[in-house]
């Protein structure tokens, strides 16, 4: 594996498609297991990827989830076309959520998604434009 190139994975996401929500993160997890990344590190990558994936399914119209796996780190990039986040500071607060009731009934929309991504990652960046979409960059180091 070229250390600069890494393994590139890319998955299309569709807003509202709860049947396959989580499948992209599941596939990323399997690749990381196959190449022998430490299980506690895989868990942090899978959780942050899953939270980001669910956010697109819940809030956006469409999006793409990319993972770049390097020997020393994994980068997760999630870009969506959607309503965006009007107030990012507010959205980063634990317990704050704009998810509707039917999402909460599924066990999501507790306002823990973004804080959980921060908690699991070594680097976290979010950019959002209201009415256009959101981009999240996550870096998790393997050691």
């Amino acid at each position: 594996m070229n250390s600069e190139q890494g393994i590139a994975l890319e998955y299309e996401l569709k807003g509202g498609d709860f049947e396959i929500a989580g499948e992209a993160s599941s596939k990323i997890k399997r690749v990381l297991q196959q190449i022998g990344v430490r299980s506690d590190v895989i868990r942090r990558i899978a959780i942050s990827s899953y939270e980001a994936e669910m956010n697109v399914i819940i809030h956006a119209w469409s999006g793409v989830l990319k993972a770049r796996v390097f020997p020393d780190r994994t980068e997760i990039i999630v870009e969506d076309q959607g309503p965006g986040i009007a107030d990012i500071d507010l959205a980063m607060q634990e317990g704050y959520s704009t998810a509707p009731d039917h999402i909460r009934e599924m066990g999501f929309g507790a306002g823990m998604g973004l804080p959980n991504m921060v908690r699991c990652s070594d680097e976290f960046a979010i950019n959002s434009v209201a009415g256009q979409g959101t981009r999240i960059n996550i870096v998790i180091r393997h050691s």
């Binding site: 929500a21 989580g22 868990r43 959780i47 599924m106 999501f108």
Partner: peptide, 13 residues
Amino acid sequence: LTNIQIIRTAEVG
């Protein structure tokens, strides 16, 4: 809960 997300959550976690 009995929806499919409980399985996803178990897998991811």
